[in-house]
Amino acid sequence: MAEKSVVDKAKKIFENYLARQGSRKTPERFSVIDELYALPQDEHIDVEGLFLLMRNKGYSISRATIYNTLDLLVECGLAVKHQFKDKVALYEQALTYKHHDHHVCNQCRKIREFSDERLNLIKEAMGREFQSAITSHSLVLYGDCKIPDCDNFRII
């Protein structure tokens, strides 16, 4: 869960972004920020999951509003969108985002985040080899985890 100051900062960034775009500043859009940033920082959520979470909390919001708002949040750097294998898009908060990579279990679909400094060494080496300033990368490792009864354990 993000601190109140982080949520307030995210809302200010979003408000400024919407103003520059000439878009409406609706309470529903800002409620998506509240709920996305209320999740644990390493949580990934899809539109349906966010929709159900918000409906269960009493929000009156459509799936379309959530889809559109998440797209806007990605555009302005407040959310990160991930596409793992053939699964639906998953989102996570980005304001305090520290780059990380992912391991996804083929069986239970549990997502684990990890960082390894050795990847930066590879990124630098490839940048030198390709004469390119590598600015970002994405790595997703797929494998079978060792959680007992993995087939009955679903995270995403």
Rank of each mutant, 00 (worst) to 15 (best):
V47M: 10
V88M: 05
S31K: 05
L141N: 14
G77V: 01
T135A: 07
A125Y: 13
L95N: 00
L52V: 08
E28P: 11
V88Y: 06
T69W: 00
V47C: 14
H44W: 10
I122C: 05
K12T: 06
G49I: 08
F51P: 00
K110C: 06
M126R: 14
N106I: 06
K25V: 10
C108H: 02
I122F: 08
L90D: 03
G127H: 12
D116R: 11
A38P: 01
H102A: 04
K87R: 08
L119H: 08
G127E: 13
I13H: 01
Q83W: 07
K98F: 03
T135C: 04
Y67G: 00
S31C: 07
H100E: 09
K87W: 02
V47D: 10
Q93T: 06
G22M: 05
Y142A: 12
A38Q: 14
H103P: 02
D71Q: 09
N120F: 11
G143C: 08
L36F: 02
G49N: 07
E15W: 02
I147E: 09
A89W: 03
A94E: 03
L36W: 00
D116H: 11
G143K: 08
L52N: 15
R24N: 10
R118C: 09
F84I: 09
S136A: 13
H103C: 04
F30P: 01
K11W: 01
L52T: 07
Q83V: 10
V88A: 10
A10W: 00
E28R: 12
E75G: 02
F130C: 12
V47T: 11
D151K: 15
R29E: 09
H103Y: 15
E129C: 10
S136D: 15
A125I: 10
S60A: 10
L50M: 14
I13W: 01
R63I: 15
I111S: 01
T65V: 06
R55C: 06
T96W: 06
L119G: 08
A2P: 00
N106M: 07
H82W: 09
N106L: 11
E43L: 04
A64Q: 15
P27I: 07
E113C: 11
L119I: 15
G58W: 00
V74P: 00
P27T: 09
I134T: 07
C105T: 12
A64W: 10
I33D: 00
L139R: 12
Q83H: 11
K57Y: 07
E92T: 08
C108D: 05
E129P: 05
A133Q: 14
R29F: 04
E35L: 07
I66K: 00
Y59T: 09
V6E: 08
C145I: 09
Q83E: 07
K4Q: 14
Q41T: 15
R55Y: 03
T69M: 02
I111G: 00
M1R: 15
Y97F: 12
K87L: 06
S62M: 13
G49A: 08
E129V: 15
A2D: 01
Q93S: 12
K4E: 13
E15N: 07
K12N: 12
M54E: 03
